[in-house]
Amino acid sequence: MRLETIPNPSAARKVGLPALALLATLGVAMLLALIAGANPFAVLGQIARGALGSKLAILETLNRATPLIFTGLAVAVAFRAKLWNIGAEAQLYAGAIVAVVLGTGALGSPLVLPVSAGAAMLAGAALLLGPVLLKTRLGVDEVVTTLLLNFIMLLFVSYLLEGPMKDPMGMGWPKSPALIPEARLPRIVEGLRLHWGFALAIIAAVAVWVIQTRTTLGFEIRAVGQNPEAARFAGMPVNAVLVKTALLSGGLAALAGWSEVAGLKGHLSSDLSPGFGYTGIIVAMLALLHPLGVVVTAIFVAGIFVGSDAMSRAAGVPTYIADMLLATALLFMVLAILLTKMRVVRG
């Protein structure tokens, strides 16, 4: 078999195949429920109800979506330039550390929130700068270096929480002291458990969309991603574009950790992120790297996680079903997207 480009793919093909990918994922979900000895339809219903069935459930889903929007944007921005930033997890923790350093009394109102957000972005950007310079200067593959940095960062956080950043009142738990009230992101509506981090994430998505569609940098990022040799031939500073992309991507990922600490948790612990950095890759790919699409897919992915937690308590199907479904959706989706543009022919 070989692949052949389809000259003018039909609209049905462009919409139908991705829809089919999601349907196939649904099929896998039902199969897994059957394997676990549960009623597949009941399991799907419980996931949906757990994610969207009540005001509380919806707010929980939106809260969970907030860091995923940031990490999804970070990945979308980087992957668009074919910069494989798999280190969003480490950049997230860099932002979280800054939120604690500046938010526990070093700065007061009204400076603390904007300054710590900016500093968090710088920290995340700096963390990605190393791997990108190694890529552009020495040709070291950034996938491996960013992945390895995730492990180094988690150990660094563990060191901070057991040493210099340990909460003396923490009863021996490795966690940081709580942020001062002025350093906390307020709730969007008083009484509802949804903080301003969610609104900021949406603003960030719009900002990235504007950068990508309305600025020279956005044009350069696309050109470098599509064909770096052609971009270089056209006189584009390819390495400089990659560095700028990295600064943006690392900064966005750092905001995920910053908003989790400043908005949701109020302190740093080493279980702050259950893999938001890695899940960001799925969020971005499902959104076809479109920044506004990231908001939608982040809420969808968060809903699967929140819904699976609720379903697991009720139906006894392990909550890891969520991770399996999302990985499956990712693989089905990349295949479906390819097949909207290419067809398989014999020979």
Partner: peptide, 15 residues
């Protein structure tokens, strides 16, 4: 299918 080896590899690891 010639899909991105980065994306597929990470997907396989997650799965």
């Amino acid at each position: 299918f010639g899909l991105s080896q980065h994306v597929v590899g990470l997907g396989v690891t997650l799965l």
